[in-house]
Each structure stands twice: as C-alpha cells, then as structure tokens.
Computed example of a mutant assay.
Amino acid sequence: MQLTCDIVISGGGIAGLTAAAAFGSAGFHVICVDPTPPVTDGTAQGADLRSTAMLQPARTVLEHAGLWDTLAPHAAALQVMRIIDAGGEMPEPRVTREFNAGEISDLPFGWNFPNWLLRREMVARLEALENVDFRAGVGTKSLFTREGSAKVTLSDGTRVIAKLVIAADGRSSPMRDAAGIGVKTRRYGQKAIVFAVTHPVPHENVSTEVHRTGGPFTLVPLPDRDGQPCSAVVWMDDGPAATARMQMDVDSFEAAASERSAEHFGPLTLVTKRQIWPIITQHAERLNAERVALIAEAAHVMPPIGAQGLNMSLNDIATLLDLAQARPEDLGDAQMLEAYHKARYKDILMRVRGIDLLNRASQASAPLARDARAAGLNALYGAAPVRKMLMQMGLGVR
C-alpha cells in the first residue's frame, strides 16, 4: 500500500503527539507512527510515571494544538522555584533560595502534568482531527529522500510519500540515523529514579530542588491525591546507588527518600511504582537533512534540571510550525529546514551546555566544591537583575 501526506512524524511520545496535534490543527495532513502504543492509564503496566512541567511558552503551543482546554483542569501550577543546598555532612538545608514567577509575570512559571495523562488527552485530540492518522504499534523501517519529497517505509509494509519527515523518535532515533546525522553524547554515570509521593506539608505550588552530592532531588507539585498534598519526584544519583535503591522495600525507600529530601515536606509516602532512567547529555550535530527535521530527544537530551527538556521540544515544534505556515507550498524544502536549524541550534547548544554545567556542579563531592556550589547559589539569588534574567532564560523568553 502507498499513501501520500504532508508530514510523517516518527515517534508518538509526548513531543510527537504534540507535533501531530499542532500541525494537524494548522490544516496539514499528518501521519504519526510509533511502534509502542501509548499507555494512557496511570495504573496500567508500562505507564510513564514521570511528570512534565510545561513552562509559560508551552501554553501557547498547546492552545494552538487544541490541547490546553482539556489539560488545564489537571494542571498543578508552578508559582515558585525553590532551590535548597543541603550539601553539608548531614542532609540538612544550608542555603534556601526562591525564585517567584510574580517577579516577571502575572502567570506561574508553568504547570505540571503526569506524563500518562498528557498522552491520554493528546491521543483523544488526534482522534478528533480528521487530517491526522495516528498509527500506534507501527514504526518506521526505512527512509529515502530526494529534493522534492521523502519516502518512508513503515514496519507494516506501508510506503508513505511526504514533503517533510519529523523525527521525534527519541535519543536513539532511527530516522536521525537514516538521515545520516551524528550525535555528541556525554555520560555521567548517573541514573534517575522517578516516582510520586504524598506528604503532610502542602507544596503550595512550589517546585523544590534539594542539592547534595550525586545530583538533585526534585519535588514538583501535582494535584492532591486522596486528599493529601502530592508531588512528582526525580531523584538523581550515581548509578550504583540509584540501582540499589530500586531494590529497597517500600518502607526503607520511603525513609531514604524522606531523609534525602531534608524532610522539607515531612515524611514521604510512595504512591506509585518506581522507575529508573539513565542520565545523559546528547545533541545532534545538525537539526536537518534533506526533507528531515529533528525535534525533541532526537535533537537534544539533557539531565532533568530546570524543566528544560520537553519545553525545548515544544520550542522546536513552534519554530517548525511557524516556518511551515509562512510558506506552506514549500513545506520541507531545503530553505525551510536550513532556517529551522539556524533558528534553534544556538539556543539548544546554550541550554545543553548550561544544564551540563549545573549537573556536574551537583555531582561535586569535595567539601570545597560543595561550599562553592552553595556560595554560587547565594550570589545568583542576591543580584536582582541576574536573578530576573535567569528566570526569563529558564522560561525561554530571552
């Protein structure tokens, strides 16, 4: 069977689904494929228990994609970003600093959502768009491009002729490899455990990063669960330590997590399963090839610090969509894709390098290095213009 469309999107993760909804809502004929059907129930086997903080600029993308109105009732606002240095001999706060969105905006920094819920609402949106064909359980098998179009062969044997192929198929992207685009990767020997907890002290819409040797322990607000304040947690540490914690019984793990959080919200009670992920930094050497554009983790992967990962992905989508709408008759041509690369690449490199530095600083174990990290946090917070600039940069508005 052979089909034609405007755009093939390889990858049905959150970024790929968002791209399909955004381009579909703009009137483009889209085929989106992913070999793994999305799990849209948080209690089901294989559910993605991570959460995603959508920063302010992401809301515009979600609105244009027809997603915001259905997501908004499930949002937990992120009004304050709190950073705690607990890098002394004991896991106790030494320096606590807060960045309040009210200093730069009438809106919160962003809104946090469970990943499985995002998938549920996004799949429902695609089902409502007649010009979007989402094929769960089908992947991309091969890519052939020429100046005027691309031919993608799917795993079920279907051949699709498209003007543009968007690679949203992850850090090991098959479409990126097929297009001959290389990547640069840094490994840290770290892993992240992700889970959700309830706690007796309300989070009051504060996202909290507790820094100690090994990596940050981050609690991001979620809506209350069974009447209790609830947060999503990302616990980064050296790989062997993280792997050992995955083997702990629930009581021991809760005690260890509560101690690592510096008891900031009181004792933590585990309310989901634990999942573990390797931490790397990676970026593609280019964002484009003939008839191919890279977005999301096919283009950039970073440690989960500062909520930059998916928000950068949504910036990729917004930039690509603006270029496509400006010259729809030339969708996917060399001029459009070169413009996309130039518009996004410098910003991606800046953020990748910045998060890399922050992560390596968080791994510091020597007492002098730990003290330097705490002093740096104090200095950044104390200079109001610098603090404001960092908040704007974090949102992607500078």
Rank of each mutant, 00 (worst) to 15 (best):
L395N: 03
R387W: 04
H283L: 14
K184W: 02
K388C: 03
T60N: 05
M90E: 14
T158M: 12
R82G: 05
A15W: 05
L67P: 01
V220P: 01
G382P: 00
D106T: 11
V165W: 07
Q79T: 10
A75I: 12
L164W: 11
D333F: 06
R344T: 08
L222C: 04
D224R: 09
V197D: 04
A307E: 09
R344Q: 05
R171Y: 04
A136N: 02
M389Q: 13
G46N: 01
A22N: 01
L380G: 01
D226S: 15
H199E: 11
Q325W: 09
A375Q: 11
A241T: 12
A296H: 09
G214F: 13
A375C: 04
M312V: 04
K163G: 06
E89R: 11
D177I: 15
K141S: 12
G27T: 12
D177A: 13
I317S: 09
S142F: 07
V160P: 12
Q335S: 12
D371W: 10
H203N: 08
I193F: 07
A366E: 12
D356P: 06
F253S: 08
D6M: 03
M389L: 15
I161K: 14
D322S: 15
Y340E: 07
F217R: 00
E290L: 11
G13Q: 00
V397P: 10
G266R: 00
L321E: 11
G227Q: 10
I83E: 09
R360I: 15
R260A: 12
A374M: 12
L331Q: 06
I305Y: 10
R291W: 13
D69T: 11
T319M: 07
A44H: 07
P304Q: 04
P91V: 03
K273E: 15
V95G: 01
L349T: 10
A128W: 10
L164E: 02
M81G: 03
I161F: 06
R50S: 07
G87Q: 08
R327C: 02
V138R: 02
W68M: 00
A257W: 11
R119H: 11
D251W: 14
P93S: 00
I14S: 00
R171M: 13
R186L: 15
A242N: 03
W111H: 02
R159M: 15
A44E: 05
P200H: 03
S207T: 12
L368M: 14
D322P: 09
F28S: 02
R146V: 09
A77T: 04
T218W: 05
V301W: 03
L67A: 02
R120T: 01
P57W: 07
P216R: 06
V352R: 04
E329Q: 13
N131I: 03
A324N: 01
L17C: 03
N288E: 10
R146I: 13
C230Q: 08
R291M: 01
F144R: 15
D371K: 14
M246N: 07
V132R: 03
L337W: 08
R135W: 08
G137Y: 05
V123D: 00
Q190P: 05
V352H: 03
A375T: 14
E147P: 08
V233F: 05
W277C: 00
E297F: 01
I166S: 01
V152Y: 04
L390K: 07
I280Y: 15
D356F: 11
E338V: 13
R135P: 04
D347E: 10
H283G: 09
G42S: 03
V152D: 01
V220H: 00
F265T: 08
G27M: 06
T198N: 11
M90W: 13
M389F: 14
M302G: 05
D333C: 13
A383N: 12
